[in-house]
Design a protein around this nucleic acid. Structure first.
Lengths: 356, 356
DNA sequence: CTGAAAGCGCTAACAG
DNA sequence: CTGTTAGCGCTTTCAG
């Protein structure tokens, strides 16, 4: 007998005068006599029946939920990823669970381990650092995981990475190509994968262009707008001593570049006439800068999309087990007004360069 | 007998030589003989047992999940809300389900109706428009809902609203107070609640300051950066005909204000010397603008926090049923460089004004 | 303090 | 084509 709670298959069965099995079959389109179908559908509509997803999950072993875990949704890069992931998962009938780890490694591990509670069918993780514990947790993860980021070669899960070495190289070569000689570099934490890679790209580009690597031109800080501004202040002060000023600032992400632009404005320096500026990630912030910011698109949206697709493939998981896959997204330099040639010589276009 | 799948209470029971009931009791801290506790905990640790949350939900009728639905996570206002909501829900052991409706009313209704599938224990909804269908859906919602936005007085659910009438008024009075006379208004869609309210505030402030309401000074458009830029272009062209130029632009949100700032820059107009600019929402974009943008903080973060708290209270739901509550967050004008007095007279500080 | 057993709502095997 | 029944993994009476 049906009680006062929400309608269940039993409620419908009673009303339609059939068994709960028939209710389930009709509702899942598994075929039944037209008369049965009619009665069940009518009864379901009358009481406004909606199947209990939890019960269905318990039976089926799938929740139709995916988890996306990143440091902080305040970063536009993650916002872009969330959007892409959401679009794809929604189209396939999955719900999206959001988890901010606040860059706490402990919390990242907890997310991976909590896959064992069967709350979601898979995880897309953006780790900030990869420790041996991360690898171990990934190896024993209870559900498929796709990592957005750079993993060691023998890592046990699928991953999508940006090529930020090449990305940084593109930007710095472009700056050099437009006649800049004293190219400062504002980087994020050096002990993170992005930090290391971007520095490497910067160095390589300087070498390739025959520019000296002046340590006084590099600042290492956090990935924030404020840090970008402070770093420019620091650079300009240092600069007072060693001699000829900097004529370009390459920033390891757009937030830094935005802060840098503002600090340059405050100091009365013109962009790009006096100092060119370039960032990375090509987020919405590029249009927030004035002049619009040259930036390297590291494919946040694409990485999000690919990660979602890989994860769904893993979940579908038919056929023989596929070994971990690594996908790399090609960076793309987007040139805007902030890096137009300055007072000195103009320069030509380099590889992978695009104008927007 | 336990099969090859993930460990269950049965696995533990066998290993520990007790019943599944004892396993459950120990794992939930319901007390047992020390010896029993020891054996269960040991067995659980050995196999790395993690309780299946789905089964637990089915039994308990609660999923420990909350849903947050808004138009588009690309809007910084929602990002701020998500952050707050996440902080609170996480602290209480809830997971957060994100749902972007893309401002499709149909989709909003679907979210409310889908509460019946018991996937989450409650919903925080940011509707863009409120139709009678919305009200009806809310009345019959299967789980508690809190709306962030302005609902009719007899609406059947809790809500938190911004006071954007007062907010707009604050901003416009401030602009007038610093000597601006021709204050343009770039608004979002007029058929939305925010659009209507902000226009009302603008009008009221003009009246209060004895300024004429020139229809040529108002543009109605979408809430985007590009729309802000286009609107300024349109205003400047119109302006060519009627005579003396505008000396301030009040924008219905920060995205519009950012676009407006950029268009003004492009036209060679100086901010704030030639034209003052003010926005609304006080998002991260205020620091992206140059000069930093005066904006009205409508309390996005606070609204998110309050909504989460109200929802959790409803879910706890002890005692007699509480009638729907409405909370209003007080707006706060944050004055920055974009609205410093221009070529003309300076002005004093108005009520609710803050300098940042 | 412990075990047996019911049951959350659903789907799917198995008979009929 | 349809009904009966088992069972997903867990918590919670109810006896003992």
């Amino acid at each position: 007998m049906t009680t006062g709670g929400p309608p269940t298959v039993e409620t419908i069965a009673e009303r339609a005068g059939v068994s709960i099995a028939s209710v389930s079959r009709v509702l899942n389109g598994h075929g039944a006599r037209p008369e049965t179908v009619r009665r069940v559908e009518r009864a379901a509509a009358e009481v406004g029946y909606v199947a209990n997803a939890v019960a269905r999950s318990l039976k089926g072993g799938r929740t139709k939920q995916l988890t996306f875990a990143m440091q902080d949704i305040g970063n536009p890069v993650y916002v872009e990823m969330v959007r892409q992931i959401q679009t794809i998962t929604k189209a396939q009938g999955y719900r999206l669970l959001l988890h901010s780890t606040d860059a706490v490694a402990e919390d990242e591990l907890a997310v991976v381990r909590s896959l064992a509670d069967r709350t979601s069918d898979g995880l897309i993780l953006c780790p900030i650092r990869i420790t041996p514990e991360h690898i171990e947790a990934l190896r024993t993860a209870a559900q498929p995981v796709v990592v957005i980021g750079s993993l060691p070669d023998d890592a046990p899960v699928d991953s999508v990475r940006a090529d930020s070495v090449t990305g940084a190289e593109l930007a710095v070569r472009h700056l050099a190509g437009t006649g800049r000689r004293r190219i400062a570099f504002i980087n994020g934490p050096a002990d993170t994968v992005p930090g290391r890679n971007r520095r490497l790209g910067y160095r390589r580009a300087l070498d390739a262009c025959g520019l000296p690597a002046d340590p006084l031109l590099t600042v290492t800080t956090e990935f924030t707008i404020e840090a970008g501004a402070r770093s420019v202040e620091a650079l300009l002060e240092r600069d007072a001593a060693p001699g000829d000023g900097l004529d370009a600032v390459f920033c390891a992400n757009d937030q830094l570049a935005l802060g840098a632009s503002q600090a340059l404005h405050s100091r009365g320096l013109r962009i790009p006439e006096d100092v060119a500026v370039a960032g990375m990630d090509d987020t919405v912030l590029v249009r927030a800068c004035w002049p619009p910011l040259t930036s390297v698109d590291l494919g946040s949206a694409e990485r999000g999309r690919i990660a979602a697709e890989m994860l769904l493939e893993r979940i579908a998981g038919q056929g023989p087990p596929v070994p971990p896959r690594v996908r790399t997204v090609t960076p793309r330099l987007v040139v805007r007004a902030s890096s137009a040639p300055g007072a000195s010589a103009p320069g030509g276009a380099a590889d992978g360069e695009v104008t927007s």
